[in-house]
Amino acid sequence: MEFINKPNFEHSFFNDIVRINYNCEAAPQVINDFGYSYIMIRYGYFEARNNQGEYIAIPRIFTKCTGDFFSVKAATNSSWISIELPNGAFHNITKLITKNQRNKLIDLYDYIPAEILDTLYVALENENEIEKITALVDKSLESYYSNWMVPLDSQPMVDYIFNKKGLLETIELSEKFPFSSRTIERIFHKEVGASPYRFICLVRFNHIIRELLENKYDSIDSLTKDYEYFDQSHFEKDFKKFMGQGVKQYKDDFNPLLTKALSRVYHETN
């Protein structure tokens, strides 16, 4: 598997762009959610299953919101390009109630003319340089960015959660922002794709799993305490919720896709 990205990637809209090329068939690998929206472009054959083990149809160009873990199996000479967007971009692109689209891959052809996407698809097929991929995507889609970047009520709260690494209680959001707890729930349902509590847990989990990957901790107990888990069993519960497996199974399994994804710098909001 060839994992191509650009360190210190910068863009006015995208958080990151990654290309993954499979030179041989890859067994199913679990990938968890990182709390962002995505546009993804598929080349070749993949099989994907959701967190219930059900097959998911994969459009060749699709957008995805925050959801649950899933598994993906790739055929030889397949590849995909993953364009990571701010969390609220999915809602701005589709105008859909985001929580109702969890674990769905929404065909971008429903929102952008086929001639634009067809041209982009052909242009990107054999391009492996991130700078050139970015330029080609901008050329095709830049006219849409202003609408996709429209400020949402959820965005300051999402940024706050990311900046605090998920180390907060949900009540802090209604204390910090001019919304009641009930209104915040509705905003997250519409724009984020997860409840405030689940999103906070997801962000915290993604920070702790990076430290687990880097092996820069004295013990699991000390690591979980640093991230305000009650105990190791509380952490195990989150691990199974967001990864579909226990800590030991994760550490025993070979999962280069997740390892590469986690090794990138977690996007910092401003």
Rank of each mutant, 00 (worst) to 15 (best):
M157R: 09
E142K: 14
K132I: 11
Y229K: 00
F199L: 10
K164F: 08
K164P: 03
I200H: 04
E131N: 13
Y121V: 05
D231T: 03
R186H: 12
E125V: 06
S219G: 05
L124M: 01
I209E: 00
L223C: 06
Q155R: 13
E191Q: 09
Y229L: 00
Q155V: 09
I200N: 04
P151S: 05
S146D: 04
E115G: 04
E228I: 08
D159K: 12
T119Y: 06
T170C: 09
K132S: 09
A123L: 08
Y144L: 09
Y160A: 03
K190Q: 15
S143N: 09
D231A: 06
Y160L: 04
Y160T: 02
N163G: 13
T119Q: 14
W148F: 11
Y111C: 00
D226K: 15
E125W: 07
I112T: 07
F230Q: 13
K132D: 08
V192R: 02
E185V: 11
H207S: 04
T119L: 09
I130Y: 04
T224R: 07
G193V: 08
A123R: 11
T170R: 12
L124N: 01
E142Q: 11
P178H: 11
E127Y: 02
F179S: 02
E228S: 12
K139N: 07
W148P: 06
Y197F: 13
M149N: 07
I209V: 13
E228N: 13
Y227E: 04
P113K: 12
P196H: 05
E214D: 13
D159R: 10
D226L: 14
L212C: 10
Y197C: 10
L168E: 03
L167F: 02
S140W: 10
S140V: 09
L213E: 12
F230E: 15
I112G: 01
E175Y: 11
I209Y: 01
H207K: 07
E185L: 15
E228V: 10
S154H: 07
G193W: 07
L202Q: 01
R198S: 13
D107Q: 06
S195G: 06
P113S: 13
F230T: 12
I133H: 00
W148S: 06
F177S: 02
I171M: 12
E127W: 03
L105R: 09
H189S: 08
N206D: 07
L212S: 05
D231I: 05
I184S: 03
D221A: 15
E131I: 08
C201R: 12
N126R: 15
V203I: 14
H207T: 03
E191T: 01
I171P: 04
N163R: 15
Y109S: 10
K165Y: 11
Y227K: 05
Y145T: 01
L120V: 02
N128A: 04
P196Q: 06
T183H: 15
P151C: 02
F188I: 05
E172Q: 11
N206E: 07
S180E: 13
Y229I: 01
T183R: 15
T119I: 05
S219I: 03
S154G: 08
L223A: 05
P151N: 04
F188D: 00
E169Y: 08
L120D: 00
P113H: 11
E172K: 12
Y197W: 10
S154C: 14
R186F: 10
G166I: 01
K164M: 10
N128P: 01
L173G: 02
I200K: 04
I116T: 11
V137T: 08
L213I: 14
